[in-house]
């Protein structure tokens, strides 16, 4: 009765044999090519172990001696985050309406989308350098940067929400003879409001995270304090700052998660 086959192979992920081998070959070539072409100074890397020892040796124990500086830096980051969230969310609402396919006329839709794409594509640190050059060092550049950053996220998510709304409610309002603004207030805002509040709180959390790094290129806040400490080889102070940043991020994440859960 044993005429049953005694071999079996799992069907390959890519059915076409040639394509499969081409993919394998491509991956291997890529790895070899990148490995060979990367400008890596191996001697310098090999030195790293000794340096790592020195850095971590210098970092422990963390020094909270200059806690005044630390607190000032942190408070500035917090202010930057708050103002940027308020400004960013306020600007996001009209931009989101512009970028919602079901509401905006086509040219405005493209304009809205373009703003969002540009705001999303540039890492906040890049935006920060440009603002620092344009408006000078300090927290104002940081606020502007994070406003752009907030628009990239909040306006995008909000536009998607607006595109998903139940249009029947808008029609009902129009059928009742409501003017444009009332339609907005009664038929669209209630549908996007919960999302909007959740997004704002989430964005405040993200902005606090980001505000810690834009300072590294001169846009104010605790990042500037950190970059200074690193530049002066004050690794123990740098570690203290990092601990504070991590702690603040964890707290803010916890609080924002809690509020968003309660709002539902």
């Amino acid at each position: 009765m044993s005429d049953a086959p005694d071999t079996w192979r799992k069907p390959p992920f890519i059915a076409n044999r040639w394509l499969r081998w081409a993919v394998y070959l491509g991956v291997i070539t890529y790895i070899v090519w990148v490995g060979a072409s990367m400008p890596i100074n191996w001697e310098r890397v090999a030195d790293g172990l000794g340096r790592a020892k020195r850095i971590f040796g210098g970092a422990f124990p963390p020094s909270f001696e200059r806690s005044g500086l630390l607190i000032d830096g942190f408070l500035e980051s917090l202010k930057i985050a708050l103002l940027a969230t308020a400004g960013g969310v306020a600007l996001s609402i009209p931009i989101a309406f512009m970028a919602a396919r079901n509401i905006a006329p086509l040219p405005i839709y493209y304009l809205g989308r373009a703003i969002i794409i540009i705001a999303r594509s540039f890492h906040p640190v890049i935006v920060a350098i440009i603002f620092v050059k344009a408006v000078g060092f300090g927290p104002f550049a940081g606020v502007l940067t994070l406003i752009v950053y907030s628009i990239g996220f909040v306006a995008k998510m909000l536009a998607e929400r607006i595109e998903e709304i139940d249009f029947g409610q808008v029609e009902a309002m129009r059928a009742a003879g409501a003017p444009y603004l009332s339609t907005l207030v009664y038929a669209i805002f209630p549908q996007i409001m919960p999302r909007q509040i959740g997004l704002s709180i989430y964005q405040l959390d993200s902005n606090l995270r980001a505000s810690a790094v834009v300072g590294i290129v001169g846009a104010g806040g605790i990042g500037a304090t950190l970059a200074n400490a690193f530049g002066r080889y004050d690794y123990d102070f740098a570690l203290a700052i990092t601990i504070v940043i991590v702690g603040a991020i964890l707290i803010s994440e916890g609080v924002s998660g809690m509020i968003r859960k309660r709002i539902g």
Binding site: M1, A4, P5, D6, T7, W8, K10
Partner: peptide
């Protein structure tokens, strides 16, 4: 997934018996 030959044969026999061998 290098199953022993006798396991594969046994699997095909049993699957044949219950009518699912063509779904292997």
């Amino acid at each position: 997934r290098r199953y022993p030959k006798k396991d594969i044969r046994r699997a095909f026999e049993l699957m044949e018996r219950v009518g699912i061998a063509h779904y292997a």
